[in-house]
Design a protein around this nucleic acid. Sequence first.
DNA 1: TCAGTATGCGAGCGATAGCTCACAAATGAT
DNA 2: ATCATTTGTGAGCTATCGCTCGCATACTGA
Lengths: 223, 223
Amino acid sequence: MTRKIRTKPRKEALQERSKATVDAILKATTRILVKDGYDRASTNKIALAAGVSIGSLYQYFPSKEALVAALVERHMSEMNAVIQAEIGRLMGAPIQETVESAVRLMVEAHSVDPKLHKVLVEQVPRIGALDRIEGFEAEVTALVRHYLESKREELVVRDLDLAAFVVVGIVEALTHAAVLGRPELLGEPFVHEVTSVVVRYLTGGSPSTNPRPTRGRKGTPLS
Amino acid sequence: MTRKIRTKPRKEALQERSKATVDAILKATTRILVKDGYDRASTNKIALAAGVSIGSLYQYFPSKEALVAALVERHMSEMNAVIQAEIGRLMGAPIQETVESAVRLMVEAHSVDPKLHKVLVEQVPRIGALDRIEGFEAEVTALVRHYLESKREELVVRDLDLAAFVVVGIVEALTHAAVLGRPELLGEPFVHEVTSVVVRYLTGGSPSTNPRPTRGRKGTPLS
DNA sequence: TCAGTATGCGAGCGATAGCTCACAAATGAT
DNA sequence: ATCATTTGTGAGCTATCGCTCGCATACTGA
């Protein structure tokens, strides 16, 4: 079922029409992956769906793993782009506002292609690309850690490393769970709720944080 | 990669020595699953590792999926046992203490067999057994929802469904991330930190919640 | 002792997976 | 028009998978 792993694509350069081929392959991979999951997504099926031959597929992606890794790469870049576009603006504002914007940003980033995101996270085995994801998380955590440092005096939390871990974990997990499992939960009430969790944790519950009442909803996260 | 799915084991009853066989198979499945992941864990390999023939394996488990499903079932039961054993005692105490105990309980439950837990969560495709997990989460959320209701007057959160979702999500995710990715983080400081997150969120930051200072640690969650 | 049943075995079947390679078509430079 | 290079093709190889089935062996009660 699983083969040897090559490391280099048979052809590196992409010129002219070949870009279209590569794009078709990646699009088809997304479709099949979302529809069938990693296991049942065979390279033959993907090539067929892309309207190219398997030969072509293997000219650009040396293995099934590499193919999926490329998808992961691309998807992470898109999420990253959403975040990097705004991140600079946030740092100056009061904590409450900064956190709120950051949460909103996270929700947006996760909403880029939720279905693909879901398969990628849930089904893709430990291919090398997983390191990419963990590296990304590490970067975000470091960034948060830095921010906390700069606001140290306004915070009641003492261990900033632990706090960064906790904050990133909370936002990631809740966003993730909501986007993937209960998309109807998303929206401003959700953003405010998560914001209030984080702000109260960091500041010990500043009085200005009293949340607007939110409408009734059912709650059941995934994992 | 994937075959038809049968529904009934070829033999139902387990008597005497056959229990040992079943046990060996499940133990081997755990080992191989942890070592190789779901894809590369072939039934032949598992039978070999268990020291039994594939024939025997298929006498007790009608398919690979059923085999893994049985593992999931068993693992969930063990986690459940840990929780059920203590859950009754918690409800009476003040919020702070109840939450703290619950968090500790969650950590313990996740520590039953972390490596197996990791594969099961990360790698096992949507086999029927996944419903089991989601059902479990739903139960827990309902329980929390109920508890929140009973403490309604002491809380500042208004939407209890949303709050239950948030609380369960937070505890699950942080415990999960810590157990799987940064086990060295676990311990009393971690429990206190998570507790304080939850309590401040629910109560708006009661003054008694000021945490003991925790020692320096690095923080980087997984997903 | 010996039939009858529960348990265990493993060669091998059909299916399908990932992937290769010899070749053909398209493209671009001259 | 010619040729070199890039790009595309798909029949088919090998490996391995999940799983079956006819048979051997161990155990049980009479």
